[in-house]
Amino acid sequence: MHETIYSFWHLCDPQRPLNVVMSGISYCDKSYRIERHGENLFSFEYIIDGSGVLEIDSQTLRPQKNDVYFLTRDSDHLYYADEERPWTKIWVVFYGEFAEYLFRQYLPSDTFLVKDCNILSYMNEIIHLSSVPQKSYSDLIDEVSVILLKIVLQLKNHLAHKVLSAAEQIKLCLDVNIENKLDMNDVGAELGYSKNYVIQLFREAYGITPYAYFRKRKLELAEQYLLNTHLTINEISAKLNFADQHYFSSAFKSVFGVSPSEYRKATKKTPKSPE
């Protein structure tokens, strides 16, 4: 067995809303076996090939090629590779308030395995960022925070692929495109409804127009970026596809009562730069 591991233990700061502890790729053999009890860690592990067993919180799961399993804070877990077809897997270990938020907001508390969900491109991006020697830890955390959000949203939406009501389909479309520009004509065209019918269905189901919901979710995500990354106000505005920074600041202030920069200063949760 061999592994490529990038460790950031020595840079972790409990005051940060997110810390990346380690990332890497494991080429397992039949001896591979990990057991933990109640540690303050989260992880995503994507199976590139092979199979194995995960025992976690009284569940026995069998992650195999193209599956994602995740480990959560305070869980008791044991996982090991199959003797004949051991795992090749890519993984990241992290913790912090932002990690808590992502899991609490988007993933079921009793789910630890998502079948047939390819997140390899995101995981490869994390490994690439981890391997850049001149990258500061603060920059790494900012960029990985965004990738983790994308992973969580893909897992959430993959789990939600069931028979959805029309209103749930509209809501899913809005959630998936939260960082993009989106017009209700586009949503209607994708789902086969008229723009007016989309608005009517959504309002009847959720008591709010899809426009208002989409704007509200964008601003909630902007709040998380302000709290948990070093992205500038202009970068957050651009990332969330607001028309310009002035419009973003105005929209944010109308909901939170202060401008984005004032909000960031007032919360005093901006991640510290490593010394």
Rank of each mutant, 00 (worst) to 15 (best):
K150I: 00
V93P: 00
I48G: 06
P260F: 08
H230K: 11
T270V: 03
A251F: 10
L153C: 02
L129N: 09
K171D: 14
K265C: 00
L172H: 02
Y79I: 07
N228R: 11
T111Q: 11
N196V: 13
E143M: 09
A251R: 13
G207Y: 02
V258C: 11
P14F: 01
Q134S: 15
L201N: 06
S165M: 12
N157E: 05
R217V: 14
D139G: 12
I199Y: 12
A212R: 08
N157C: 02
G188H: 04
V21I: 15
T60A: 13
Q64D: 04
C28Q: 15
V132C: 03
E97C: 00
N228Y: 15
Y101R: 04
G96P: 01
G96Y: 02
F44H: 09
R33N: 12
L221E: 05
G24D: 10
T111E: 11
D29Q: 07
L54N: 12
K135C: 13
S250F: 12
I151W: 00
F98V: 01
N228E: 14
Q105F: 07
V114T: 08
Y106I: 10
G257F: 14
F94D: 01
V152L: 00
E168S: 12
I151K: 00
L155F: 07
G96M: 02
Y193V: 09
N118A: 08
Y106E: 06
N40L: 03
K162T: 13
Q105V: 05
P133G: 13
D175Q: 15
D76T: 12
Y95R: 02
F98C: 01
A205N: 09
E39Q: 01
K89C: 14
L172G: 03
T4G: 02
F252H: 09
F8N: 08
P108I: 04
P17G: 07
H246Q: 12
T209N: 05
F214G: 12
L148E: 03
V68S: 03
V146P: 02
S138E: 15
E125G: 10
L41D: 00
V53G: 04
D186P: 01
Q15H: 10
Q15S: 13
R16H: 09
T270F: 02
Y101M: 03
E190A: 14
R16E: 08
G257V: 13
Y101G: 04
A222W: 06
E235L: 07
R62W: 05
D67M: 00
Y263H: 11
S130L: 07
R215N: 14
E220G: 06
S261H: 05
